[in-house]
Write a protein that binds this DNA or RNA. Structure first.
Lengths: 300, 300
DNA sequence: CGACATATACTCACAGTGAGTAAAAGGGAT
DNA sequence: ATCCCTTTTACTCACTGTGAGTATATGTCG
């Protein structure tokens, strides 16, 4: 039997939100995600990553979730006798622990994906990308319709609405069309900053996962400091989703879920009426199940 | 640096639904999930698994999705110089390809998890389990309340509703309480058939994942044959969810999503009024986004 | 031919959601 | 002090989607 011996490598996407801007921890001046070998002493993969992040960054790591494992042959083309298995994780870091705006190592999500931030309307970056993808779709007479539909759905064109969860799909579409630097060409488009190997793809995976998860699990609170205002909470969600939310309805949503409680204190940060401070009720997870999509049940 | 050399092992949870019963492919007379080494020739993990399943089982494999990767030290206690990394996958097999009821290698989900099938009401198996878990909760004076809440929520007691997606949570709770054979004791409870190593845990992971996924992605159709009746479709979903569904509402749900279309033919299988046959519209995935939980958007 | 079984079609009340408006409570300028 | 500006907080209203139940069509079997 051809016994497969392999390297195991852990890759971390550590995310924090500071100043209403989602950020990711990087190394090599923002060129790569932090990664390290899985070593024999580690109890488990998760434990390995935790230890390793602590050593290297000093950031206490709260929420941690596995993203994806891959071992494509193309990734280690040099060494034919060994394969590298990469296991990627998504980790959330609390705001207080995150460094200031200009601190080294942390870069904004939207430096890498300028077209993903729709908080102030459709970003300009999308204009050029839309045109380039439309041309790419038209360029293959055989698959034209199929390609055009993929483009429309991904970018929210021709009647389709923008869907923030399709971040990974969009990146892969641009990769396939050769619009990003990692795939060769980059015809002067605002196609965002590129990264080492497939690290930007991993970041896109993390963004997609997190954008989906905030809708049905209270993970945002892993990014918030102990107490916060409702506006602050909303801005954090908006930063992650890359969308502007409806204030009254956001508030209704939050308190009908009973996720938070008042601390009693107030905040007078932003030159308007002072806002109540809230804290997350951890106990909620034990009280009642969170709403998830439902099947049409029958009572008997 | 302590370079981590490791074995890579692929584990597959292959599921089909035959005769309205969800089944999983097994080896060793139902004692283990099929697994095999990841070899150097394989292009990628996914490709490796596909090849390997084809060789071993001859079943064409449709949908395939990564489940989880783990490498706990406890799993390979003998060999200290090498670690085994296990990468598990969920695969869906179409009904027509699946063998008959008594065929070797395929076993019903609910042999391993008798308490998970609520299609005909709460199964009897839950009575004993409920009692045992309540006793377990009460046995630790310090953590009593916390434990009791976990039990109530997992099993749907004291006001909580049964949530079919908690299959993994339930198994882990029973494991923690020492009620399953894999964790030592099994005090004569109907705690289901056990499996090699942590394979039953992996199966529980697959069940949980699939039960969640059928709600927001049209994966059921990966299990159906080319044409089917609405009742057949419903029974397949019910088999997976382990729940009875409300017929009129199930139908409404399906056709308002425009997932299927009539073939024109009829089926006169089950001694009542003949039913229309339908087929899945693959094109739907390109037409409009599937509904997912939504954030309260703002229009500008 | 009538009882039975299943498929299919329609109805109705209600809760949750999208969207917008109004009032409250601070700071700062005049 | 008063008025303006900003932000928080509170309330309203129409509408759609969902839970639940009932009625009708169309076959088979005794």
């Amino acid at each position: 039997m051809n016994d497969a011996l392999a390297h195991a490598e852990l890759i971390a996407v550590l995310t924090a939100v500071t100043n209403d801007e989602p950020r990711v921890m990087t190394v090599s001046k923002g060129e790569a995600l932090p990664s390290g070998p899985f070593e024999l002493e580690h109890r488990s993969l998760q434990a390995g990553l935790r230890e390793w992040v602590n050593e290297q960054t000093g950031h206490p790591l709260g929420y941690l979730e596995q993203l994806y494992t891959f071992a494509d042959r193309d990734r280690s083309p040099m060494d034919k006798a060994r394969r590298t298995i990469s296991i990627s994780y998504l980790g959330l870091v609390r705001e207080q622990a995150a460094p200031g705006a200009g601190a080294p190592g942390w870069h904004g999500w939207y430096e890498y994906f300028p077209w993903e931030d729709h908080r102030e309307g459709r970003p300009e970056a999308l204009a050029g990308i839309t045109q380039a993808l439309n041309e790419w779709a038209a360029s293959d007479p055989m698959r034209r319709d199929h390609r055009q539909k993929r483009v429309d759905l991904s970018l929210g064109l021709n009647g389709a609405a923008w869907n923030e969860e399709l971040a990974l799909q969009r990146y892969e579409l641009m990769y396939e069309a050769g619009l990003v630097a990692e795939a060769g060409g980059d015809a002067g488009l605002p196609s965002g900053r590129s990264m080492f190997a497939d690290h930007r793809r991993i970041l896109a995976t993390a963004i997609t996962r997190l954008r989906a998860k905030i809708k049905y699990r209270p993970v945002v609170f892993e990014l918030m400091s102990e107490s916060f205002t409702l506006s602050h909470l909303q801005h954090t969600v908006e930063a992650l989703a890359g969308l502007a939310l409806h204030k009254p309805n956001f508030r209704r949503l939050i308190d009908q879920q009973e996720l938070i409680e008042e601390t009693g204190a107030m905040s007078s940060e932003t030159g308007g009426r002072p806002a109540k401070l809230y804290r997350y009720r951890r106990a909620i997870l034990e009280e009642h199940a969170l709403s998830s999509p439902r099947l049409p049940l029958s009572r008997n």
